Amino acid sequence: MADETATARQKRVWDRAAPRYDNQMPLLERIWFAGGREWLGRRAHGRVLEIAVGTGRNLPFYASDVALVGVDLSPAMLAIARERAAGLGRAADLRESDAERLGFADASFDTVVCALSLCSIPDPAAAIAEMKRVLVPGGTLLLVDHVASSWPPVRAAQWLLEQVTVRAAGEHFTRRQLPLVTAAGFQIEEAERRKAGTVERIRARRP
């Protein structure tokens, strides 16, 4: 689809992936992202916005007292997330929205969460700028994602893999979000890399 925008392609890709997503993720999460969702849930507080909420795999890990809003490009992913929220008895406002153009007023949230998604958002810098805009001063940004490895041989393999995944699904393996978060003016409070530096967790504060 030569005239398709990057955002429209991502919506199509994730709508198509939605029925299989929950079957594909558990093994990856155990081996590669273990503990990441729990890490996010322990740090989220107050009015929480989750960007690219997907099928709602983070929902079980949020404290019961957070006021949760989740957005995603994909209606098919959101439909599964709504079913998950209902099954958990979790009140959540789940709506369709583009991470690069969020439909919320400035300073609307105490915490913004984005897990395993900036790797495929077409313009991650624009998405991070929007996350900052909707956070209150002093608000918390929480990110978990796969990033370019700190080991050169692994990074070279990621680059090769990316030649296929970027064309097929907009999925990047050699991005790193920390420089973008810093450039956006956030104060970094926690940053740790795992699995040969291929997974990074970031907690940052809006000044």
Score class of each variant (00 low, 15 high):
Pro153Asn: 08
Ala184Gly: 04
Thr5Asn: 04
Trp39Met: 02
Ile51Tyr: 04
Leu88His: 08
Asp3Leu: 14
Arg203His: 00
Ala148Cys: 06
Leu94Ala: 00
His45Met: 01
Val181Ser: 03
Leu180Asp: 07
Glu189Trp: 11
Val154Ser: 01
Arg193Phe: 01
Gly89Ser: 06
Glu29Thr: 09
Gly89Phe: 02
Pro137Asn: 07
Leu178Asn: 12
Ile128Ser: 02
Arg194Trp: 08
Arg82Lys: 09
Ala148Gln: 07
Ile80Leu: 13
Met77Val: 09
Glu200Arg: 14
Leu27Thr: 08
Gly138Glu: 03
Ser149Glu: 06
Leu161Gly: 11
Val166Met: 09
Ala191Asp: 11
Gly103Gln: 12
Gln10Glu: 05
Asp22Thr: 15
Arg84Cys: 08
Asp145Trp: 07
Gly54Ser: 01
Lys132His: 04
Ile188Trp: 10
Phe104Cys: 01
Trp151Tyr: 05
Arg133Ser: 09
Thr174Leu: 09
Ala126Asn: 02
Gln187Ile: 10
Cys114Ala: 15
Asp3Lys: 15
Glu29Gln: 11
Val69His: 11
Ala92Arg: 10
Ala81Asp: 07
Gly35Tyr: 06
Ala44Gly: 08
Val181His: 07
Leu68Arg: 02
Gly197Ser: 07
Gly35Ala: 02
Pro137Asp: 07
Thr5Arg: 12
Ala196Phe: 15
Ala79Asn: 13
His45Leu: 01
Asp72Thr: 01
Thr174Ser: 09
Asp145Gln: 11
Gln10Leu: 07
Phe173Trp: 15
Arg9Lys: 15
Asn58Phe: 06
Ala125His: 14
Leu28Ile: 13
Ala63Asn: 04
Asp106Pro: 02
Thr55Cys: 05
Glu171Pro: 00
Ser117Pro: 04
Ala52Lys: 04
Leu78Gln: 03
Asn58Leu: 13
Gly138Asn: 12
Ile121Lys: 08
Ala105Lys: 10
Ala8Ile: 12
Val166Leu: 10
Ala126His: 03
Asp106Gln: 09
Leu135Val: 10
Arg193Gly: 03
Ala52Gly: 13
Val13Asn: 10
Leu73Phe: 03
Glu50Arg: 06
Ile80Lys: 13
Gly89Gln: 02
Arg9Ala: 09
Ala79Trp: 05
Leu180Val: 04
Val134Phe: 03
Leu102Tyr: 04
Arg16Asn: 11
Asp72Cys: 02
Gln158Gly: 10
Glu189Gln: 13
Arg133Pro: 11
Lys11Thr: 14
His172Gln: 06
Ala6Asp: 10
Arg203Glu: 04
Ala86Lys: 15
Ser97Pro: 00
Ala105Met: 01
Ala204Ser: 04
Gly70Thr: 11
Arg30Glu: 05
Arg12Thr: 08
Pro152Ile: 01
Asn58Asp: 05
Arg42Leu: 12
Glu162Val: 06
Arg57Phe: 05
Arg47Ile: 05
Ala17Ser: 13
Ala44Ile: 09
Arg167Val: 11
Asp65Arg: 02
Ile80Arg: 15
Thr5Asp: 06
Ala156Asp: 00
Val199Thr: 13
Gly197Tyr: 11
Arg42Ala: 14
Glu192Pro: 06
Val166Pro: 07
His45Gln: 08
Glu192Gly: 15
